[in-house]
Simulated assay, not measured.
Amino acid sequence: MKSMTIKQIEQSIEGLDIDKALEKLYFLKSEFGDKVDRIIEKYEKKKLKHEKELNRYLGMCEFEKEAYQRGFSMIAGIDEVGRGPLAGPVVAAAVILPQDAFIEGLNDSKKLNENQRERLFDVINDKALGVGLGIVDEKQIDEINILNATKAAMKLAVQNLDLSPDILFIDSLRLDDIHIVQNSIVKGDAKSVSIAAASIVAKVTRDRMLKEMDKEYPMYGFSKHKGYGTSEHIEAIKKYGICPIHRVSFTKNFVI
C-alpha cells in the first residue's frame, strides 16, 4: 500500500459516493500523511457543493411534500414552452417523478444552458414514472389563440401519460374540463421539481423540432432563435415572407 501513487489513490476511490470516498481517504492519510491532503480537500469541496445542491433541490420539493402528506401519490408537473415565438408549435410536457427522486441540477429550464438541459432531459426520461407530451401546431394556434392552444397542449400531455396522476401541478394556469385536482403555482418552474422537470422536457423537445425545421427553411435561422422574434428573424420575414410554420396571427405586422 505504501507504494501507491497519488494517481492510484484517486483511482481507488473512483465510483465511490462522496462520504465513502472521504472515509477511505482519511484512512489512507494514516499511511500517507500530508500526501493525501490535496485529494481530501478536493472531496470536501465536492461534499459541500453536493450538500448545497441537495438543500436547493429539497427547497423545490415543498409543494410535492405537502401533496404527499395530503395523501396524493402521483403528482404530474406540467409546463409549456413556445407561447411567445412567431413560428412553430407550443409544446407542453407532463412529468411524474418518483417520490424519492433526486435529480442533481434540476431547475427551471430558463436558468439552464442547452447542454445542461440536454443532459437533464435524458436523466428525467430515465428516472420519471411517466412523461407525456402535448404539441399544438401553428395552424391551430392561429385558429384558437395561443392561450387556448397552450391549455390544449397541456391537456394532451396529461392524456399521453402512461400513468394516471391524482394531482396536477401547473405553471400559472388552470385547465378546464379535466377532472383531476389541480394546483396552479405562479412561477412554478422555479418552485416545484415536478414542474421544473416538465419545463426541461418541453423545452428540449421544442428546440429539437425547430432545429429540424431549420433544415427545411434555413433562411430564417430557426436553429438559432427557435422561432422567437429576434431582429434577425423579423428581418428574414420581411425579406422572404412567412413560411408554413409561421403563425399568421403573430407575424401579420411584419409582412409587407
Rank of each mutant, 00 (worst) to 15 (best):
G227R: 10
L175E: 04
K42H: 06
L133S: 06
Y228K: 07
D34G: 11
S223N: 10
G188M: 01
I103W: 07
I135E: 06
P165I: 11
Y217V: 03
I144S: 03
L163E: 15
A202N: 05
Y68S: 09
T205S: 14
A153S: 11
N55P: 00
S3Q: 13
N253Y: 09
L58R: 15
T230F: 09
I78C: 15
F63D: 11
E104I: 13
I75Q: 01
L58M: 14
L120Q: 10
V36W: 11
K239G: 02
E31K: 13
R83T: 09
G130T: 07
A153M: 01
L86N: 05
N145F: 02
R70D: 11
Q116R: 15
E212K: 14
M154V: 10
A93H: 09
A197P: 00
A153L: 03
L48N: 12
A101N: 07
I242R: 03
F121A: 04
K47F: 03
I180S: 05
H50M: 13
K203I: 04
F222Q: 06
S223M: 09
K47T: 01
S164H: 06
Q8V: 06
L58F: 13
D171M: 08
I242V: 07
H225T: 03
S194W: 00
G71V: 12
P85A: 04
E62M: 12
R208K: 14
L173T: 00
N55A: 15
Y26W: 14
T205D: 01
L168M: 07
K239M: 11
L86K: 01
K7V: 12
I75F: 01
K239P: 00
D162V: 02
M213C: 05
G229N: 05
Y240S: 00
F169G: 04
G33E: 04
L54Y: 14
C243A: 15
Q159D: 13
E232C: 01
D108I: 08
A21T: 00
M74L: 14
A149H: 06
V193M: 08
D37T: 13
D142F: 10
K151D: 00
A21P: 02
I146V: 10
I40S: 08
I185F: 03
D176T: 07
M1F: 10
A190Y: 04
K52L: 12
E118N: 15
F72E: 08
G71C: 04
F72R: 07
P244Q: 11
A152F: 07
K252R: 13
E53D: 13
V204F: 04
F169K: 06
A153K: 04
E31N: 10
N160L: 02
D171Y: 03
I200R: 00
E138C: 08
A92R: 03
A196R: 00
E235N: 13
D37R: 11
Q140C: 02
K20L: 10
Q8P: 06
A198G: 05
E216N: 11
E10H: 10
I96T: 08
